[in-house]
Nucleic acid binder design. Sequence first.
DNA 1: CTCCCGATAT
DNA 2: ATATCAGGAG
Length: 219
Amino acid sequence: MSITRKWSAKQQRALEILIRLKRLYPDAHCTLNYDTPVQLLVATILSAQCTDERVNQVTPELFRQFPNARAIAQADIEVLEALVRPTGFYRNKAKNIQGACRMIVAEFGGQIPRRIELLIKLPGVARKTANVVLANAFDIHEGVTVDTHVKRLTQRLGLTEHSDPIRIERDLMRLLPMEDWENWSIRLIYHGRAICQAKKPKCDACLLADLCPSARIEG
DNA sequence: CTCCCGATAT
DNA sequence: ATATCAGGAG
């Protein structure tokens, strides 16, 4: 068989999975709470290796005291650390959100730049965070968001052979039409939380099992 | 590769 | 005790 035909079959399978995910999670949306693009950026930096639910517990007070980039840029770093502490990695995260906000104030007039090449220069921001902000705040789709759920499920579904998120993103960008890139990521994340968990995936309850080479029905 | 790091589930 | 959570930097 040719490599071309094999890849096309994989693409067909990805599209069928996407159709089912849309039917399963019709109202899937970003579960981080925010009022502005800058707040979304901050919340997304805080969400590294931490549930959105926990991020949403600290951001109301964080954004009440420091509602915009200028305020975060001028904040006492120890106050920021105390506010973000429950999200883990709190020293790095406090330093990164302040560093990012200082750069946003100094170079972009306090507004989030809308180009991924500029966003990923901000401290604590790589492609995953940049894709989340661009897609949700501006409806700009420069790439596919690849977080821990998208990585795990895409691997289990046999849609990539890679473990590097950058290479996984490149595979997904070729498999899926651009207008569905964010549909794909947000729904895989919902499915990863509800069914295809890292530890004990509920394959017996998974409506993608017949399309999944990793599916196992436990006895 | 390691480190950053708290909260929760198993 | 160990693994995991919308990762990123050195």
